[in-house]
Amino acid sequence: MTKSLHISVLTSLVLLFFVVSDYHDGNLARIMVLAIYAVGYNLLFGYTGLLSLGHALFFAAGMYGLALPIQHLGVSPIEAFAMGLASAATVSLVIGFLALRTTGAAFMIVTLMFAQAGFLALLYFGQWTRGDEGFVIQQADRIIAGIDFSQSTERYFAAFVLFAVAYLLIAWLISTPFGKCLIAIRENEERAQMLGYDVHRHKLLAMLVSGTLSGASGAAYAFLFGYAGATFASVQYSILPLLWVLLGGAGTTIGPLIGTAFAFYLIDISSHFTTAHLLVVGLAIVLLTLFAPQGLAGEIRNRLISWLP
């Protein structure tokens, strides 16, 4: 049953491209790339039970890990993507190693502070990063093997393939003994340890996978949409994946995609009416914590379909 769910989710994403207008194709490509970020965040928050307030650091590590070498070293896109992943992996291992010495609220604040330091560092080294203003990755640098990823069709399917890989990776991971142990840690950390699991090592690995996926999202975003800027490292971009996962349903495979799409359109529609579109984000967060802490997919699982993974 879960297999057919995954297949139908992915097939609908392919079909949607041919059904909806160009405007929505562009939005959907963006949503899929950002949903990779949410999928990565969900592994740590939804499945392992660790609430990080600093994932923008990993997103930015991927983004700048790809964009800076392209911009300053003239590296090819494929190599740059690998560099983006490597830098996100390294940053998440280092931060994980340090931050996982704390728990609960301290973990939240430590991750927040590291991310803030990273954001400020991007501003401080504005000479290379161009700070808040950011920089554009030229169309000529966004071509791999003759395929121009600045075009909407190519971009859409690149986003789709990357999302599908991330989605299936997590769906597979949580069905393995490793994934079950992460869930066990979320449910009852001390019990997991007293069953003989090395809790710290599992959390660190979860952090590594989560951070690297977030970085992959950042790298893909910079490459497919041709822009890198320090805003993507700000606190707001650490809060957004939390919002997406809370909205969609923490600890569900489908939740991150639903949440990202829902929030994206919520903000998109509200920005037609007001410049204060973040108000919607704030209200959504407050109302969710109050009334639907399980999110959309979580509430569906509780009320309707108990097998939802």
Binding site: L51, L278, G282, I285, V286
Partner: peptide
């Protein structure tokens, strides 16, 4: 999480 939401509400 809720006070993060409040932050945005008050600010906006």
């Amino acid at each position: 999480v809720a006070t993060i939401g409040l932050l945005y509400v008050i600010q906006q």
